[in-house]
C-alpha cells in the first residue's frame, strides 16, 4: 500500500467543503470556500521562505515532532478540458453530431486537499490514527479553524473523532515521494527470465499451431501431421492454437499480477530518516562547518581537544540533544543550545 513507504506515512485527504454561506469577520455573508481560503491564508507557514523567515510566527505543524511536510489546498472544481477529441470521419460514419453538447464533469462541492507526510514505525490504520490524535493534541484550535468549513466536521469533538473523520476522507496516495536515501536502497531483484521463457513457449505454441491450422484451410492435410506421442488423437491443431492463446494470456496476466504485487511492497526505510534525526543532521552540518573553519591548520592536540569539546557540546548521536527546531531554515549559532 503506497500510503506507507520508506518509513513514512503519506496521508492524502479530500474533505468536501460545505456549500452554504457563513458570516465573515465583517458580518458579510461569504461562501464556505471563501472563508476556508481566508483561514488558510492566515495560517502561518514554516519560517523557511524569504517572506516568512523573520516573521517569528511559525507553522502550527512545527509543534509536532513527526511531521515532515504538511500542505493544504482548495480544489474549487475539476478543470474542464473541452470536448472529448474525436475524428471527423469517425463522427460521419457513426452519425455523431458535434453540435450537440457533451456532458461537462463538475465536482458537487469544492474540496479541501490536505496532505501530511509523517514518521510511522510500520504500515497500518492504527499508526495513522495515532498520529492524527497526536496532531489534534498539538494544534486542535488550528485544525478546527480550517476544517469547520468541511461537511460533517461538526461531529468531531476530540482526537479520536478527528481521526475517524480524516479516515473517511482519505484517498490512497499512489505516488509517494521518498528523498532520504543518499545511497541506492537495497531493493529485491525481480527476475524476468522465467517469465520471458514462459511467454516465449506459450506464444510459440500459439503461433505455430495457428500457421498449421491455416495450412489446413488452404487444403493441406494437416490432420495427418502429428507430433508423435505428444499430441493426443482428440486434440486438433485448432484446439492447440486455442490452448496456446489462452496459456499466453494467462502467463502475461500472472506476470502483471507479480509485478503489481512487487510494486505494492513498501520502499525500505532509509537510515536516520525520521524527523528528529533529520533535524539533528541539519543542525550538526551547520555546527561542523563552523568547527572545521575554526580548527583549520591547528595542531593535533588542539584538534583533539576541540573535537572532544564539540562532541560534548552537540552530542551527535543523541537526536534529543542540541538540535534544530522544526519549521525553521537554519539555526544561527547564537541560538544553538
Amino acid at each position: 500500500m503506497p500510503n506507507f513507504d520508506g518509513g513514512h506515512y503519506f496521508l492524502t485527504v479530500l474533505a468536501p467543503v460545505r456549500n452554504d454561506t457563513v458570516a465573515s469577520d465583517d458580518g458579510v455573508p461569504i461562501s464556505c470556500e471563501q472563508a476556508l481560503r481566508g483561514e488558510l491564508a492566515r495560517l502561518p507557514t514554516a519560517l523557511q521562505s524569504r517572506v516568512s523567515v523573520t516573521s517569528g510566527l511559525n507553522s502550527p505543524f512545527a509543534r509536532n515532532k513527526r511531521t515532515h511536510f504538511a500542505r493544504f489546498s482548495v480544489i474549487s472544481d475539476v478543470i474542464y478540458n473541452g470536448r472529448n477529441p474525436s475524428d471527423a470521419i469517425f463522427n460521419a460514419v457513426t452519425g455523431t453530431n458535434p453540435i450537440i453538447p457533451q456532458p461537462v464533469d463538475r465536482l458537487t462541492s469544492p474540496f479541501l486537499l490536505a496532505a501530511f507526510d509523517f514518521d510511522v514505525p510500520r504500515s497500518g490504520d492504527d499508526e495513522r490514527d495515532g498520529y492524527l490524535r497526536e496532531l489534534w493534541g498539538d494544534m486542535s484550535e488550528e485544525l478546527k479553524a480550517v476544517f469547520q468549513f468541511c461537511t460533517g466536521f461538526e461531529r468531531v469533538t476530540d482526537g479520536a473523532s478527528f481521526a475517524d473523520y480524516i479516515a473517511k476522507c482519505q484517498v490512497e496516495t499512489t505516488m509517494p515521494f521518498n528523498d532520504y536515501w543518499i545511497t541506492p536502497p537495497p531493493l529485491p531483484e525481480f527476475n524476468l527470465t522465467p517469465w520471458k521463457l514462459g511467454i516465449a513457449i506459450t506464444a510459440a505454441i500459439f503461433v505455430i499451431s495457428l500457421l498449421i491450422s491455416l495450412c489446413g484451410l488452404f487444403g493441406g492435410d494437416v490432420a495427418s501431421w502429428r507430433i508423435s506421442g505428444m499430441m493426443p488423437s482428440w486434440l486438433s491443431w485448432w484446439g492447440l492454437t486455442l490452448i496456446g492463446l489462452v496459456a499466453t494470456v494467462v502467463v502475461i496476466w500472472l506476470l502483471y499480477r507479480a509485478v503489481m504485487a512487487a510494486g505494492l511492497k513498501p520502499f525500505p526505510t532509509a537510515p536516520d530518516s525520521d524527523l528528529k534525526s533529520v533535524l539533528k543532521a541539519i543542525f550538526l552540518q551547520q555546527r561542523f562547518v563552523e568547527f572545521v573553519v575554526e580548527h583549520q591548520g591547528k595542531d593535533a592536540a588542539a584538534l583533539y581537544a576541540g573535537f572532544g569539546a564539540f562532541l560534548e557540546q552537540y552530542q551527535p548521536s543523541n537526536p534529543d540533544g542540541p538540535t534544530q527546531t522544526p519549521g525553521v531554515i537554519s539555526t544561527p549559532r547564537g541560538e544553538a543550545k
Partner: peptide, 13 residues
C-alpha cells in the same frame, strides 16, 4: 547574507 533572512542568512564558503 540575504538581507531579508536576518540571522538565518549565511555567508558563503
Amino acid at each position: 547574507r540575504d538581507p531579508d533572512a536576518g540571522e538565518h542568512g549565511t555567508q558563503s564558503n
